[in-house]
Amino acid sequence: MFTTLTVIATAAVAIVLAVWARHVSVETRRLRAALTDAAWQLAHDPLTGLANRAGLLAAHTILAATPQPIIVVLIDLDGFKTVNDTHGHDTGDDLLITIADRVEELTDLYGGTAARLSGDEYAALLPADGHDPDRLGAAYVAVIAEPARLDVDDAPTTIAVTASIGVALVASTDGFGEIALHRADVAMYHAKHGGGNRHVLYTPGMAMPTRTPRRGPRPRDQRPSQGRAGA
């Protein structure tokens, strides 16, 4: 009788432990998934799924760990406000997603990381790996300028935008914001100043153009930054 009770008690304990272990395992997986999702959201743009500024910084850190030249591309859409004003913000969002897909696809071909920094501004970091930055800039101009077919009020509509693009070739030891992005930013402003729908390659000593036709400051310019005065 005593042996039977012992066996039953042991079996019961085993069942309880198994159930508890299974519960712990499920809860652990749930927490791990929640943490992974939270980490992804911190590093990505919720609209397009591209990396955000934090994600691009992380990509730069990884890329810069290997001594090598890096190509930085900064993309600003021309006349995007007109799309929002004419077709509405939902259509504008659809266009931003379409452009993001194009930028990401081209960037992936060169082993880089694409990002949406804010509003209608994108960026890409790529290992130089012998690629011609000038030709790469031209490729981004071309893919973005292709007309997009979007549904506007349930009717297929062709919408086209162009982009002003700055391209900079930097060293892996150059700082992310104060040098890499800054140089591409200066070149992008020259492209914008030149009428848009073009790219400009940063050259040593290049400074901001004296006048730019851009509408107001960008959201990322209104936030405190870590020294963007480098050239």
Rank of each mutant, 00 (worst) to 15 (best):
R220E: 10
D78E: 08
E104Q: 14
G130L: 05
G196F: 02
G49Q: 07
H190E: 05
R30C: 02
F2P: 00
R116W: 06
L169P: 01
R215V: 10
F80C: 06
T48Y: 12
F2S: 11
A160C: 09
A128Q: 15
R116T: 05
V200H: 05
P127E: 03
A54T: 13
P219I: 07
W20L: 13
P204C: 08
G166I: 08
A9M: 08
R220N: 09
P46I: 10
R22H: 13
K192H: 07
T36Q: 14
A58K: 08
I70M: 05
G230H: 13
L50D: 03
F80M: 07
A59E: 03
R29W: 02
A180E: 00
G194C: 06
L109G: 06
N52G: 07
D78K: 05
A123D: 01
A34T: 10
A142I: 04
Y202H: 15
P46Y: 04
L57C: 09
M188W: 02
D94R: 14
A21Y: 09
R220V: 15
V72H: 04
H89L: 05
P219H: 06
D221H: 14
G166N: 09
R214D: 03
R30F: 02
A64W: 06
A14I: 11
R149E: 15
V103Q: 03
G88Q: 04
R211I: 11
R30H: 11
L96W: 00
G196R: 06
L117M: 10
N197W: 02
T91R: 00
Y202L: 04
R29K: 13
R22K: 09
R32A: 15
A163C: 06
D132I: 04
L117Y: 02
R32I: 01
A54K: 09
S225E: 13
A58D: 15
T212W: 00
Q41R: 15
P133I: 03
Q226D: 12
G79C: 07
V186H: 01
R220T: 12
D129N: 14
T4Y: 07
